[in-house]
Amino acid sequence: MKHLSPQRLVRLLPALAVLALGTAALPGRTGQSATLVTPAPVPAAVTPANPSTAAVTSTREIVLELGKRTISLLDNGKVIGSWPVAIGDPSTPTPTGSFKVRNKVVNPQYQSTVSGKVNPTRGAQGPLGDRWIGFHTTTKDQYGIHGTPTAWEWTVKGREAVSRGCVRMLTPHVRALFDQVEVGTPVVVKR
């Protein structure tokens, strides 16, 4: 892949991630051996050597204000979209700081970091909804902005602090955000 420019590589990352993860990452597909559980970062083999210098030419930035429980998309400092969110419970808070979008996944599958149990439901009614925007990973957990099944919409509408650190959005809102950001987009999480 040495002949690919950084710009082209960044544009190809989502497609390469699907290839690396197998058919399980495709909407409507399930697979026994290549199940995507808790969305994984793009494999190191296809990640640019220095993601902070990857050629993201966008002037967009995601800003999450935990106190207001609002997530906004800014372009050149101007708010172009703002939505209510549910955030991490005080015992499992949403991490604060400056991050970047690490990965984007359509129809992610959830696996509990506590029990290891995999939830087989994918799509809009799955625990992670039908969109995942990963922004931080630790040795144990992955944090992202994701959709919310209908049964849990009350958590977003009430701007609750109930998740295990992730950021929940309503389905149409997370889809709108997902479509307007790319891997490498800055994510700022403020108290």
Rank of each mutant, 00 (worst) to 15 (best):
M1N: 06
K2F: 01
H3Y: 08
P6N: 10
P6M: 02
R8S: 14
R8L: 12
L9V: 03
L12S: 03
L12A: 10
L13Q: 03
V18E: 13
L19M: 11
L19T: 13
L19S: 15
R29C: 13
Q32R: 15
A34W: 15
T35F: 11
L36F: 01
V37P: 00
T38M: 04
A40H: 12
A40E: 15
P43H: 07
N50E: 07
P51V: 00
A54K: 00
A54Q: 05
A55D: 05
V56C: 08
V56M: 10
T59S: 12
T59H: 12
E61N: 10
E65H: 13
E65T: 13
K68Q: 11
K68V: 09
T70Y: 09
I71A: 08
L74K: 05
L74C: 11
G81Q: 15
W83G: 05
P84H: 13
V85Y: 09
D89F: 06
P90R: 00
S91G: 11
S91P: 01
T94H: 09
S98W: 07
F99A: 07
V101D: 01
N103I: 08
N107A: 12
Q109S: 11
Q109G: 05
Q111W: 09
T113Q: 07
V114H: 08
G116N: 04
T121F: 10
R122M: 03
G126Q: 13
G126I: 13
H136V: 10
T137H: 15
T139N: 14
D141S: 11
I145M: 02
I145S: 04
I145L: 04
G147T: 10
P149L: 02
P149Y: 11
T155R: 14
A161K: 04
S163N: 01
R164V: 04
R164D: 06
R164F: 01
R168T: 07
L170G: 09
L170S: 05
T171C: 12
L177G: 09
Q180E: 03
Q180V: 04
Q180T: 11
V181A: 05
V181H: 08
V183W: 13
V183F: 13
K190Q: 02
